[in-house]
């Protein structure tokens, strides 16, 4: 049993029109994109609507695309799951590179509270309306956002790990 992806697509397009786009099957999970201003409504809709009923938030995480255009440099990925029909869905939203902000869903799914804090901690993405948006795994005094691509993993001064010797450029 599974919910037809075409049905989900039709339903979402009917309700949210041009706010949703890029419907595609990525490997075994159906995914689509939402504009950042309507993420909350879309997720609430997917959860509350009886025939979609995505009642479980599996995962929430951020991704950084520094090479994209300004308005699409950050991405927040939500994985939702309907246990009854055993269907998973992936919702993505792209955010502005200089001021990444998106509405919180911590009141829709209690479990997203820490996951949003983690995303804020590593990417600096602000979740508007989050009850306690502060760092969670890193220390409070930290000023940078370590999972952004520009954050170097190792000390730049090291000379013993030169990637040029292996015919490639460093990728961090």
């Amino acid at each position: 049993m599974a919910i037809e992806t075409a049905y989900i697509q039709e339903k979402m397009q009917q309700k949210f029109a041009d706010k949703v786009s890029n419907f595609e099957m990525q490997n075994d999970i159906f995914s689509f994109e939402v504009t950042s201003d309507s993420v909350r409504e879309v997720i609430l809709f997917l959860k509350e609507e009886e025939d979609t009923n995505f009642h479980f938030l599996t995962d929430l995480c951020g991704v950084h695309y520094p090479d994209n255009e300004e308005s699409r440099q950050f991405c927040v990925v939500y994985h939702l799951h309907n246990w009854v029909e055993n269907t998973r869905i992936r919702v993505k939203t792209y955010l502005n590179g200089t001021q990444p902000e998106v509405a919180t869903i911590s009141d829709v799914f209690l479990s997203s509270n820490w996951m949003e804090r983690e995303t804020y901690d590593f990417y600096g993405i602000k979740f508007i309306g989050h009850p306690q948006l502060k760092r969670i795994l890193n220390m409070d005094e930290m000023v940078s956002f370590p999972l952004r691509k520009e954050f170097p993993m190792e000390d730049n001064g090291r000379t013993d790990k030169d990637d040029r010797f292996f015919g490639r450029t460093a990728n961090c």
Binding site: T58, L110, N171
Partner: peptide, 30 residues
């Protein structure tokens, strides 16, 4: 619980992004 690996690749030798869905992290907030 459900241990998940969310992997994004861009064709290079390393993952572009790898996120671990760690069950402990999620339920410990309760």
């Amino acid at each position: 619980g459900e241990l998940g690996f969310y992997l994004i690749t861009d064709g290079s030798r390393t993952p572009y992004r790898l996120h671990f869905r760690r069950p402990c992290f999620i339920y410990y907030q309760a």
